[in-house]
């Protein structure tokens, strides 16, 4: 039963994620965090972090991770199959139509309108991750002690390294992680 729900949830993600890469992120968040409560926002942020560091599409990573957490290996297979099912269907159909008619311009023009919407949705999911990172209790509130200035500093430094120094994104992320580990170790030493 839970496997069927995983299959259907990830099938929905597979049906509506246009534009590759990060485009899946808002849809995964909607299904996994908001609708089904399979992961907390913090665990979802960790998942995005892990997905960034490992090869393969984020949605397949998410499907395997969530599926295993919720229902073990069977859940992982159910979620992954659910995600790739619409792809297999639509891509094969399009490839067939293409070999028959060779006209993609209408579809491509439609996608040109969809792209800006996808950018907006990625921005929204990105803000969710930043809020989870910047605020100690994970929600937007400027109460004393809730804002982590250290994280905001890491974020600013990471942006500079990405934009100005053009460092590899994975390296930038690892540097942020290493900085926090050093901070934690220094804290335990002082105590």
């Amino acid at each position: 039963m839970i496997c069927l729900r995983l299959f259907l949830s990830f099938m929905q993600i597979g049906c509506f994620c246009f534009g590759g890469g990060y485009a899946a992120m808002p849809l995964i968040e909607e299904q996994v965090v908001t609708a089904n409560h399979w992961l907390t926002m913090n665990a979802f942020s960790d998942l995005v972090t892990i997905a960034e560091m490992t090869p393969g599409p984020i949605a397949i990573n998410a499907a395997t991770f969530v599926g295993t957490q919720v229902a073990g290996p069977a859940g992982a297979v159910a979620a992954t199959c659910g995600y790739i099912f619409p792809s297999c269907l639509f891509v094969t159909l399009l490839a067939y139509v293409y070999t028959r008619f060779r006209n993609l311009s209408l579809i491509q023009q439609t996608l040109a309108s969809l792209r800006p919407a996808v950018v907006a949705l990625i921005a929204k999911a990105g803000i969710g991750i930043l809020i989870a990172a910047f605020f100690v209790n994970g929600t937007f509130s400027l109460a004393a002690g809730n804002v982590s200035f250290r994280m905001i500093l890491y974020f600013a430094a990471a942006l500079v390294l990405l934009r100005k120094a053009k460092l590899n994104p994975i390296l930038v992320m690892v540097l942020c992680g290493a900085a926090e580990v050093i901070f934690y170790c220094a804290g335990t030493l002082i105590r």
């Binding site: 942020s45 972090t49 950018v119 921005a123 991750i129 994280m151 290493a178 580990v181």
Partner: peptide, 28 residues
């Protein structure tokens, strides 16, 4: 230690996504 690592990396992922969104938005 790993929780600290993941916590710090979260800020880095946020920066990576911000950078991607900036580029994509600029293109639009």
């Amino acid at each position: 230690y790993i929780a600290a690592m993941l916590g710090g990396m979260r800020a880095g992922v946020g920066a990576v996504i911000t950078s991607v969104v900036y580029d994509m938005g600029k293109n639009v």
